[in-house]
Design a binder for these strands. Structure first.
Lengths: 250, 250
DNA sequence: AGTAGGCTCGAACACTGTGCGAGTGGCTTT
DNA sequence: AAAGCCACTCGCACAGTGTTCGAGCCTACT
């Protein structure tokens, strides 16, 4: 039973295994251990054999609880989505609620950067993904959205978090991998930029005017994310006041 | 010479190999063939051995032109970014230009979905990525942005394309993998949703009201992307008129 | 007491990325 | 013309991968 056989074979749609006896392994345990390995060493650090030994079990024992590695990763992704908190509609203004959700999504992805590379592989419809959807629908319904625009709005909010986190993860991983400080990296890249300068006049002009990269990238990256989020929420808000949440008559 | 050694060891920063004689392989050729394999069969379809035989060469010959597989993938990613067209500032209103850029990014990513999983690994600073940055700076400068907000705006635009493409790629890949039609998949998922219904009252209410999923997902996905893009551009535009492009005094 | 079946696991298969060292052919230098 | 350099190709080998298969154990029910 391979999870790639189709939606019907997807982890989520398949009934769970009947359980009796005192098994020494459990799916939750396996997923948790996998996440620890992934967090600590990235995607390359997770192999079924290493995961097995880490759990004091044979590598192939895992295959009783999990169809294959792909499916294990799907489970792990959903687990990460479970870390995202979405406020109740009544608790805050919807803008604040949306910010909190997006912030939560972003930081969950940055806490577990290996998820980012997996998001494009399968649509995530695990229980935690569903719960996240449910609560976003609640939030945006209360805000006044309905129908397709509601769905668009929630999807766009997530897209912003995912897209931002992707870029952030890229530079963070480079910094971590090289072990260099931001200043050292900037020094390394400088000559390359100088060489390409003739081809990039506008970029160079901007770079000169904005001054040398001073702030540490973590801060800049967060600022970029926050700026984009505000713009997006502004855009959603004016759409809301203009359309009152209903799809245009078109 | 491993590319993971740091920025200094990155493909882009390292001087190209001196070339003489009549080599039968070239870096461009290798990258192109790799992209064909990736497009046709996804990330799993690319192995150094298969790539070698496809080029009529030994697998290890590739290592003369490319430090390792990681670096080959970096080159391929930049190549994909080369497919994105960004209009000249004078040619259109900046909103149109920004839309065209984002559309181009989105479709490039959807044409080569394997890129999506790679974007979070290394910051892409290949020549094509640089050119893309250059032209976005030109576009947004002409629109009236300056300083950090300019950089934030371009980054956010890309983030929207990337985040949207990620979700789109996820469902497209599932459809392709299963070979099922959208209706069949919906039927498969239905009982699962019913089972979870008690936990997702708001989502269920929305689902009932919006009606059964009728349109094909490609269209819905594109609509979602377009809706989000409009909202984002609205948000950028009102920021621009309010702040005149300059960072707040703060 | 006997049997079913949930669960573990070792051996094996086909495959992966990559280091190493030997080999080959054309260019430059003597 | 001879010699040598060196860009380039490639076969072998190593350590590791995901996954299948079949044998076995141990518990729980008949």
């Amino acid at each position: 039973m391979r999870s790639t056989e189709g939606f019907t074979g997807s982890v989520w749609l398949r009934p769970p295994r009947a359980r009796t006896g005192q098994p020494s392994l459990s799916r939750e345990q396996i997923v948790r251990a996998a996440m620890e390995l992934l967090d600590a060493e990235g995607p390359a650090g997770l192999s079924m054999r290493r995961l097995g030994t880490r759990l004091g079990a044979g590598a192939t024992s895992l295959y009783w609880h999990v169809a294959n590695k792909d499916e294990l990763l799907e489970l792990a992704v959903d687990e990460v989505l479970g870390e995202v908190y979405v406020p109740e509609p009544g608790d805050t203004h919807w803008r604040v609620g949306a910010s909190i959700s997006a912030n939560g999504m972003r930081s969950a992805l940055l806490r577990h950067p290996w998820v980012i590379g997996l998001l494009g592989l399968h649509p995530t419809l695990g229980p935690n993904a569903m719960r996240l959807g449910e609560r976003l629908v609640a939030l945006f319904t209360a805000a006044g959205f309905t129908g397709m625009p509601l769905s668009h709005a929630t999807a766009t909010l997530n897209a912003h978090a995912i897209g931002s986190a992707t870029s952030e993860a890229a530079v963070k991983s480079a910094l971590k991998r090289t072990g260099k400080t931001w200043e050292e990296v900037a020094e390394d890249v400088e000559p390359y930029l100088e060489r390409l300068a003739p081809d990039n006049p506008n970029y160079e002009k901007w770079r000169k005017e904005t001054g040398p990269l001073r702030k540490d990238p973590e801060q800049v990256l967060e600022e970029t994310y926050a700026f984009g989020l505000e713009r997006l929420l502004d855009g959603l808000e004016i759409w809301l006041t203009r359309n009152d949440g209903k799809p245009p008559p078109a």
